[in-house]
Design a protein around this nucleic acid. Sequence first.
DNA 1: TCACAGGGCGCC
DNA 2: AGGGCGCCCTGTGA
Length: 643
Amino acid sequence: MYVVVVPMPGGRTALTTVSADGPPRILRTVDDDALAASVVELERTLHPRWTWADTEHAYPPLLAAGVRVDRCHDLRLCRAILRHSLWTAMSVLGRSAPDAWDAPRRPAPAPGAPATAEPLFELGRAAPPPDPVVELRAQLMALQTAGRHAARLGTLLAAESVGALVAAEMHAAGLPWRADVHDQILARELGARVPDGYRPALMEAKAAEVRDALGVGPVNPDSPVDLLAALRRAGLPVTSTSKWELQAVAHPVVAPLLEYKTMSRLFTANGWTWLDTWVHDGRFRPVYVVGGVVTGRWASDGGGALQLPHVVRDAVRADDGWRFVVADAAQLEPRVLAAMSGDGAMARAGRATDMYEGIVASGAVVDRQHAKYGMLGAMYGGTQGVSGQVLPQLRRAFPAAIGLVERAAEAGERGEQVMTWLGRTSPLPESGGVSPGGGAWGRPGTGSQDDGGGAGAGLAGPPGEGGGEGPSDERAVERAERSSASASQSRARAWGRFTRNFIVQGTAAEWALCWMAVLRQRLHALAVADTESSDAGSSDAGPSDAGPSDAGPLGAGSPDTGSPDTGDDASRGILGATAGPHLVFFLHDEVVIHTPAHLADEVVRIVEESAVEAGRILFGPAGENGVEFRLSVAAVTSYADAK
DNA sequence: TCACAGGGCGCC
DNA sequence: AGGGCGCCCTGTGA
């Protein structure tokens, strides 16, 4: 049962039910300031899948009113998935021209900014507002065209949508952040804070060390051009100022320069300015951009939330009487690859807590370093060094797994699209320019893929053919042809590396979404149970054996088959988001939960069970060759103590 | 004065 | 010269 939240003129909202059988029905219309109360009531009685244009805009006001919803359908995010997925490409939705629903994400207004009465989408003056009921029905029809894949794709829609809920909830809760500790870290690393425009003392001293070590006069280490010139004057054989090139040089300037770079990075990216900008009232509130990466990973908007350097993580401190439970999935991507490919040998290697050690134990490679670099190289497309060297061994030991990524790479090189386990589909190469269907992708010598107007631009057809003026010098022709061919091949291989990685990174992102979906539900159940101390019932509301298409925390795999309630949770929707254990941070394969200290042990159990459940949701019950998804979990007071 | 590209580096 | 990001700085061009 879907309840669609339909904004109406005059500050009112219609709540409309949409179900598999029967036409849409307006349940009620309410004033916007009464919406939260209606949501709470319907959450209890109907437990619907709340359907709205954009969770990022619809959910924060509810959260501010203390209202949590269990599940939703985010029309903007789900539309993007359905329009791109190869499984729904032939649907009406898949074939329709772009419209207002395809508009780029509109960031939610910053807190404190004046509330705008903007429409949900930027539209031309005459365009009617998009009807979310119509859109939902179009999406459900599109999903049905996926046939036997509808269950998986439906799981993806539910997972993406619950991700949007989690993102909004984590933003609302904020990551506990001690500005005083952060300041101490900065003072220790850089020197005490100084006014804008000055370098802290330790940084200034390090810059002086660099200048003295070079001995060629004043140098601004912040200017790559100036710095490179000084390095060359001092006789260093470098062509750039990058770390990897400097590390290969034996010169007294290298050590202080690399240290300066590290300090400078901390100062500019996560220094006092960052602290003033992003931390308020003891909380860092990142804006997570769900679906912000083509692979399905999240991006972040402002504050660099997904790039928090380790050195500042000690400023992340649990509140008094609270703890963090920090969990990260061990070797998530290779485990996902093993599961996707059904590679039993690799799954067995994953029985080890450290999968790379398991690979060593299997006899495929000689040590952990080879296992790790070899697997990373296989998933990223590395050919050099250790990864290229051990690839043949890995291919022999794990033919199904390595074969899967190599087929994905070959497809990408041919210009074809690839899909994650749940059906998220890679974009077409060069979708911004070159017309598809030319057949020239990756095939040297035919069709110029345009080198930016350079030498390759004259090779639209075979040289010397047609009435065009080909280069008169045959050697030049050959040179240009070779250059075009190799440029084309190199582009094709680059795209192959992208599609190779896409299937693994994207499926890992799906696993992480499922993990959080289960976790979120069980944490909430724990919070409710803890609040109602008289309640003797189980704190585990989740089903124990949900297969890929069964109902579970993601609702039904196919979202309109109806979804059994997971309990008669009387407090559903009314428990404040931060009253009990709750998610506060997410980093691709890692979560941080902020929990009252007395629940920390239970939270550790829950986060582990949730990982097992995520594996079941995606890949079904783990049989003999099933892949185990291992976690590294710690209950800590400081985030820095997690690893 | 502004927007943008590129170098560089933080995270996974 | 291995995939995906965001953010800082500088330098450049308008």
